[in-house]
Simulated scan of single mutants.
Amino acid sequence: MKVLLTITSLGVGGAERLVTGLADHFAAAGHEVVLVRFHGDAELSPTDVRVRLENLQMRRSLLGVLAAMVRFRRLVRSFRPDVVNSHLVHANILTRLLRLVTPMPRLISSAHNTNEEGRGRMRAYRLTDRLANISTNVSAEAVGAFEQQGALRPGRMVAIHNGIDTAAFTFDPAARERVRTELNLDEAAPLLLAVGRLWEPKDYPNLLRAFAGLEGGPVPPQLAIVGDGPLRGELEAMAGSLGVADRVHFLGVRHDVPALMAASDVFVLASAWEGFGLVVAEAMACGRVVVATDCGGVREVVGDAGFLVPPRNAEALAKAMGRALRLSDDEHERLGVAARERVLARFSLDVMADRYLAVYRDDDLSDQQQLQGTK
């Protein structure tokens, strides 16, 4: 099968990790794969050299968009894919519009959230919905949110849970020791970890308030935050005003996330909204105890293998973080093992890729429960 994957950009994010992982998986399975981004440098990219990587170099102007669409049309006509699968809102809408003038045997639009941040974007989804054969989203909760917001008609979107490379995301004691040495932490220092872009959906102010309200033990807990974004300066200032700047480590963009997860004792997601919570599944695959806000599809990921609290509730988040840190060694290990087993059974890259291929082939689309996996 000839597969053309499109995505808005290849920055460091959950959707980008998913798409590059899919590209690698499809290439390894013998499919011919082209991965197209609309603009920007490739901070993430496939590891399989058989994946052809293209950049449309779209500029933020009408002429820039039109020039990129002309390049996109030439690429599609030259490659002649069997299926086109677009990811993220801008790529979804622009790829749909290209289908008005460029034949595509089958087009799948993949969203990655419950909230696309604006009525205009949901209206664009609704107006172009007929141009896609089917759409996907990362959880049953996210599918319901799109339907409720009128982005498409019921039955026009199916849920495919995100999948991760469980061989890459696993607990590594050597990595734990190396990272904790880098952070000047001995084994007795409790370390909480958060990973994600520093922007509004992730609600880092909620996390910092919760961390500041966390009851300290004999050794004060530390917090490492991995990622960058427009709110970094504001968040660093907030950590200072809360009196926790000396215990909060802003690490910026890192490419050793599995090692950082191994170094942590508790993984925390404080998001106001999510589509799926890929990073939560990655932490669970590493055997970490997870504390997360109950938003989007996060409940579908965590199940009974972690702690869930309401979004935007710093007090509840602090209490759950404290409970997680006070677990005995046996309880910590039991919950970590259960978390990894849950990911292996439901959220592996193999399971996800098979579900995408079923949608590409138009297999069993009436059986949404099969595509969604067991809740």
Results as ranks from 00 to 15, higher is better:
80 R>M: 14
95 T>S: 14
300 E>K: 05
267 F>H: 06
36 V>Y: 07
180 R>H: 02
324 A>D: 01
116 E>T: 14
55 N>C: 10
175 A>C: 07
151 A>H: 02
287 G>N: 08
176 R>M: 04
123 R>S: 07
255 H>M: 08
193 L>M: 12
213 G>W: 03
260 L>V: 03
146 F>G: 00
204 Y>N: 06
252 G>P: 00
133 N>R: 13
99 R>H: 00
311 P>D: 06
255 H>L: 07
48 D>T: 04
266 V>W: 08
216 G>Y: 01
168 A>V: 13
327 L>P: 08
324 A>N: 05
343 V>L: 13
121 R>F: 11
9 S>T: 07
225 I>C: 03
115 N>H: 14
205 P>G: 13
209 R>D: 08
73 R>G: 09
72 F>N: 05
153 R>D: 13
28 A>F: 04
352 M>N: 01
8 T>F: 11
375 K>G: 02
234 E>W: 02
361 R>K: 13
352 M>P: 01
107 L>P: 04
230 P>T: 04
67 A>K: 11
202 K>P: 01
105 P>E: 11
91 A>K: 01
59 R>L: 10
12 V>S: 06
188 A>N: 12
296 G>N: 14
296 G>E: 09
4 L>E: 02
241 S>N: 14
231 L>R: 05
182 E>M: 12
77 R>S: 09
279 V>R: 05
345 A>H: 09
83 V>A: 09
283 A>D: 03
222 Q>G: 01
52 R>L: 10
159 A>G: 07
262 A>Y: 04
67 A>P: 01
206 N>G: 04
233 G>Q: 06
21 G>F: 00
170 T>L: 11
65 V>I: 08
351 V>M: 10
77 R>Y: 00
238 M>C: 12
153 R>P: 07
349 L>S: 12
256 D>K: 01
157 M>N: 09
189 A>G: 03
140 A>D: 14
24 D>Y: 13
95 T>P: 12
283 A>V: 12
165 D>G: 10
360 Y>A: 03
122 M>Y: 14
16 E>Q: 13
254 R>S: 11
179 V>H: 00
6 T>R: 07
183 L>N: 01
98 L>P: 12
338 A>L: 12
217 G>T: 07
209 R>L: 09
158 V>S: 07
366 S>E: 15
171 F>G: 01
268 V>L: 09
256 D>A: 03
335 L>W: 09
219 V>Q: 15
176 R>W: 07
206 N>Q: 00
258 P>Y: 05
331 E>C: 02
171 F>W: 14
1 M>H: 14
326 R>G: 12
226 V>M: 05
312 R>L: 13
56 L>K: 03
172 D>M: 06
48 D>W: 01
179 V>F: 05
326 R>L: 11
331 E>W: 07
111 A>I: 13
362 D>K: 14
338 A>G: 00
118 G>I: 02
86 S>Q: 13
138 V>L: 11
200 E>P: 09
187 E>T: 15
